[in-house]
């Protein structure tokens, strides 16, 4: 039982690290980035390729992963989303095209990783970091799990504090509520969007490296699965609410763990899809989200 809880906690932390960036971008800049999963995977992939050549410790891989994620995310924003938004005739059609553009862009890193790995799982066999396992009261905890949970909570709370108390956080929240007024008040939307995308990409890269350590290896397709789960966590918590996404990620992980232990395990995926459906239908603003204040 306690073991299940530990597992749920580390699973939820992975969801959270992945979903934080997605939620940040969606709730403020208004972009639902479907390339987020590919960015996550590709950051881990590049780290894996590098550490196969040079034996690197964990902190170095985390830095590489976060940097690759941030760069890729900025590239997607510059090369895909900005041109789409410039050409879109209104917010509604722009939103759709960004979703489609994200799916299109995601195909490139996925194809590269699949090509190089032959669609086989990749990991950090070359890294100098080795996961150690502790046994406490009959519960097994790995050092990586502890790190994942700590990273998720620290970063999650850090983002909340930053959004609430810093000037740039306030500016970011203001464009999430009313982009036009925010621009009038001197908020540079373009720069802010770019830096937010960079932060989100960095978080995705970090999550990619940590998840790969946690699982031992991931496949190039891992990003797609996480994308849907993160979407469920964001929707559950409420778009635009960082506290919501934290709760959403852990609720989803606990629910999945319960389903996993109580059934054959084949129903696990139904949990996230079911959550998405149920929340959208019955409480579309999620648990903590604000009601839609944006004018349509």
């Amino acid at each position: 039982m306690l073991q299940d809880l530990i597992n749920a906690l580390s699973l939820g932390s992975i969801y959270l690290l992945f979903a934080l960036g997605m939620s940040l971008v969606w709730g403020t800049v208004g972009i639902l980035n479907f390339a987020h999963g590919a960015i996550f995977m590709f950051a881990a992939f590049v780290s894996s390729v590098i550490t196969d050549q040079v034996r690197l410790p964990l902190p170095a891989l985390i830095v590489i992963g976060a940097a690759v994620g941030a760069l890729l995310s900025v590239a997607v924003q510059l090369l895909a989303f900005q041109p789409i938004m410039r050409r879109a005739k209104d917010h509604r059609s722009g939103e759709m095209q960004i979703l489609i553009g994200g799916i299109g862009v995601a195909a490139i890193p996925l194809a590269i990783a699949e090509e190089v790995t032959g669609s086989n799982p990749f990991g950090f066999a070359g890294s100098s970091y080795v996961t150690s396992t502790f046994s406490l009261l009959g519960v097994r905890v790995t050092s990586t799990q502890l790190m994942v949970v700590a990273a998720a909570l620290v970063i999650g709370i850090g983002v909340i504090v930053w959004l609430r108390f810093s000037r740039s956080g306030l500016a970011l929240r203001s464009i999430g509520v009313d982009p036009e007024t925010a621009s009038l008040m001197g908020v540079n939307r373009r720069v802010l969007s770019l830096s937010t995308m960079a932060v989100a990409g960095g978080l995705a890269g970090l999550a990619g490296v940590l998840l790969t350590y946690n699982l031992g290896a991931i496949t190039p397709e891992s990003g797609d699965v996480l994308l849907i789960k993160a979407f469920a966590a964001v929707i559950l918590g409420g778009v635009g609410s960082m506290a919501g996404v934290i709760v959403g990620a852990y609720v989803l992980a606990v629910a999945e763990t319960i389903v996993l232990t109580q059934t054959s395990g084949l129903w696990v995926d139904a949990v996230s899809f079911g959550f998405i459906f149920a929340v959208l239908l019955f409480k579309s603003e999620g648990l903590f989200g604000r009601r839609e204040v944006r004018r349509t």
């Binding site: 090369l79 895909a80 553009g101 799916i103 299109g104 490139i108």
Partner: peptide
């Protein structure tokens, strides 16, 4: 590199 070309085509078209 077939899959990569495929990806580029899709991305270019979408954007």
């Amino acid at each position: 590199w077939q899959k990569v070309i495929y990806g580029v085509i899709v991305a270019l078209a979408a954007i």
